[in-house]
Structure formats: structure tokens, C-alpha cells
Design a protein around this nucleic acid. Structure first.
Length: 202
DNA sequence: AGAATGATCCTCT
DNA sequence: GAGGATCATTCTC
């Protein structure tokens, strides 16, 4: 059962809180083959005073400054929109912009539990194990056909929507450090649903 | 202009 | 668990 839309949640609460609140939310993607959907089971927060955040850079004196570029422009746009970027020559990453325009913070969607259209996701991924469809940020964008054209897309609208559902109980949320980054590696801003089969790594 | 980096994934061992 | 793939973007000269 849906319990809310992204805004006003996005744009009115701290990014770390939104990263936790997004656990359990449904990602709905309309593709030529049909609709696919999954619930979010793993997220990471990126903040504007965070050396690992694409929207800022650390100056020689140690302070943080905004740095808007063609790639990360969506981070500086309105909350509730997608920030999609390409990395490692192979993978798209899906983020939710969480703060008002000009404030570059976002939540990376790292894993989904498939809820609809599993056969489509298996086919797009070229695998036969359901767990391998969406248990990582690069995998889930391939399974859902998410690419550059959805950078800046309003996530309240088709063909890519995120709908909030009931919050995951605090006792079921595991808080830990982020994965695959080289800066600010000990910030505890990764969250996942305890025991969920689709979490990328424990 | 050239070099380095990267919010990853896959294929080995 | 380690290393390579692969290339757009960003940084440095």
C-alpha cells in the first residue's frame, strides 16, 4: 500500500533521514516489454559537506565548495528528481535528489527486491538467478533500463516513478559504511533491510 | 592535450 | 579475494 509521494518527503527532511525512509519504497519502471517494479532494500546518502559527494569538492584549505558540472547538474535541480550518471565505462547509477535546488545532496539506490516483471529483468540482465537481477547499483539500472535519458527526470511521473510505502521499522534497518568510495570511507551513511536477500553486500 | 579517476561488475583462482 | 574491463568526466599541465 502506497503511503506518500517523494515530495514533500524530499526537500523537507535531512538526506540521511530520507535515505532510511526510502527503504521499502517502490521503484516502478515502464518499458516496451511491460512494467517492472521493485522495492528499495539498500541506499546510501551523499551530502554537501561530504568529500565523496559529486556535487562538492574539497579545497586545499579543507573547506568544501559546490562544483556544478554538466554531469552532476541534476543534483543542483529540484528535489524528487533523478540524478543518473555513467561510471566505470559500463554502469549507470540511479540517485534521488533530496534537497531544494542549489543544494547538491542525493541518495544512491543500491539494491531492489523484484516485485513485478521479474522475467523482463532476468532477460535484460542475461541471468537466470533472480538475486542477480538487482543486487547492486549497476545491475538494477540495467535490469530496469535506466540510462542517461532519465537524468533529471521527475520521479513522480512515468516512465520511472518512486512511491513511498510504510517505513521499515528501525530495528530492521542496518546502518553501515558506504561501498566502493575512496573518500570519507567511514561515514555511516549506508542503509539496508536486515536479512534481505537482495542486499549487495553485508 | 594527456593523465588519472571512478558511488561497479565479471571472471578467474 | 584479486585483477582487468572500459570510457566518460574531471583534473592537471
Amino acid at each position: 500500500m502506497a503511503t506518500g509521494a517523494l515530495p514533500p518527503c524530499c526537500g523537507a527532511r535531512p538526506t540521511v533521514e530520507i535515505a532510511r525512509r526510502l527503504l521499502g519504497a517502490m521503484v516502478i519502471r515502464d518499458l516496451p516489454e511491460g512494467r517492472v517494479a521493485g522495492r528499495i532494500v539498500e541506499t546510501e546518502a551523499y551530502l554537501q559537506d561530504d568529500p565523496a559527494c559529486h556535487g562538492v569538492r574539497e579545497l586545499p584549505d579543507g573547506t568544501m565548495a559546490h562544483r556544478q558540472t554538466a554531469r552532476n547538474a541534476a543534483m543542483f535541480g529540484p528535489p524528487g528528481c533523478a540524478y543518473v550518471y555513467f561510471t566505470y565505462g559500463n554502469h549507470f547509477m540511479l540517485n534521488v535528489v533530496t534537497q531544494p535546488a542549489g543544494m547538491p545532496e542525493a541518495v544512491l539506490i543500491r539494491a531492489l527486491e523484484p516485485m513485478e516483471g521479474l522475467e523482463i529483468m532476468l532477460a535484460r540482465r542475461g541471468v537466470d538467478n533472480p538475486r542477480e537481477t538487482t543486487n547492486g547499483p549497476g545491475k538494477l539500472t540495467r535490469a530496469l533500463g535506466i540510462g542517461r535519458e532519465l537524468d533529471g527526470h521527475d520521479l513522480a511521473q512515468p516512465p520511472l516513478q518512486i512511491v513511498l510505502h510504510d517505513p521499515i521499522p528501525e530495528a530492521e534497518i542496518v546502518t553501515t559504511t558506504r561501498i566502493g568510495i575512496s573518500r570519507a570511507i567511514d561515514y555511516p551513511w549506508r542503509f539496508y533491510v536486515r536479512g534481505n536477500h537482495w542486499v549487495s553486500r553485508k
